[in-house]
């Protein structure tokens, strides 16, 4: 069976040759099967978001290979990789165009990977489709399709961005701490929607989170990162039976230091 994602010994150093030199990814290798939902945890500067950005192509990596469903995307620019990837960012402002209305944002996402021609930016049939999809969120947004996204709350925006990321089925969904900027109740709702979308469309997904409970409670696989390396990789039944204290102990055992993340929620 082909792998949904293969990272082969990926390296990235920021500010090379300066006093601020920082080894962000130090030989990251991982393979994801189709349908895998991997949660990613780790301390400050462990390389969690950096790994997602490397896959998304925000900047080129120094060494290594990135293969999505047998397509080597290592040297593709960011906008070409978008064909394979759905992305939701930490900052709710990042995932949408706030001066454009909901249906326009969805229409942009619906054309991900396609050529942008002089055809209509949005058609009647698409409006019907978007309306139907929005109603599955249960937020009443299907009645507000011509509302500017800038007028939505952070949680609503993340929900819309999630839907946009899945409108055209991506080979891989990248969730970069997408609930971190939300209040606990909204964060829980957005996580629920994430689960719902991932299950419904049978997506392969990677989710960076600062909440250890969420990391254990969601997905079928969990990885822990430290200093640009994957230091722990657990799946299936073993993952289900994990507790937060197991993770902390594991971290200390492997890294030899205490778990350090100002924002990590330990309970």
């Amino acid at each position: 069976m082909s792998k949904a994602l293969v990272l082969k010994d990926v390296h990235k150093v920021f500010n090379k040759g300066t006093v601020n030199e920082k080894v962000a990814l130090d030989g990251v290798s991982i393979e994801l099967d189709p349908g895998d939902f991997v949660t990613i945890i780790g301390g400050n500067g462990a390389g969690k978001s950096t790994m997602l950005n490397a896959i998304a192509g925000v900047w080129p990596v120094d060494a290594g290979q990135i293969i999505v469903n047998e397509n080597d995307i290592t040297s593709l620019p960011e906008h070409k990789r978008a064909l394979y990837l759905g992305r939701v960012f930490q900052d709710p402002m990042m995932g949408t165009a706030v001066t454009m209305v909901i249906e326009e944002n969805m229409a942009l996402a619906y054309r991900r990977g396609g050529k942008r021609t002089l055809r209509r930016g949005i058609t009647h049939e698409e409006r019907e489709l978007f309306k139907e999809k929005l109603s599955t969120l249960g937020l009443g947004l299907e009645e507000r399709m011509t509302t500017k996204v800038g007028l939505l709350s952070g949680g609503q925006r993340q929900a819309v961005t999630l839907l946009m990321a899945s409108l055209k089925k991506p080979e891989l969904l990248l969730l970069d701490e997408h609930t971190a900027a939300l209040d606990p109740k909204t964060a829980a709702k957005v996580l629920e929607i994430s689960d719902q979308i991932i299950n419904e469309y049978h997506l392969t997904a990677m989710m960076v989170t600062h909440n250890m409970k969420d990391a254990i409670g969601h997905g079928n696989r969990l990885i822990m990162m430290n200093e640009g390396k994957i230091i722990y990789d657990v799946r299936g039944e073993e993952k289900k039976s994990l507790h937060v204290k197991d993770l902390l102990a594991k971290f200390e055992e492997v890294s030899g230091t205490e778990f350090d993340n100002d924002r990590m929620m330990l309970s």
Binding site: A82, L83, E104
Partner: peptide
């Protein structure tokens, strides 16, 4: 639409290909 999206949020525009 792609022009308007790029002007509003280039990061989002790239993520949409």
């Amino acid at each position: 639409s792609a022009i308007r999206a790029t002007g509003c949020n280039a990061q989002m525009a790239r993520a949409q290909g």
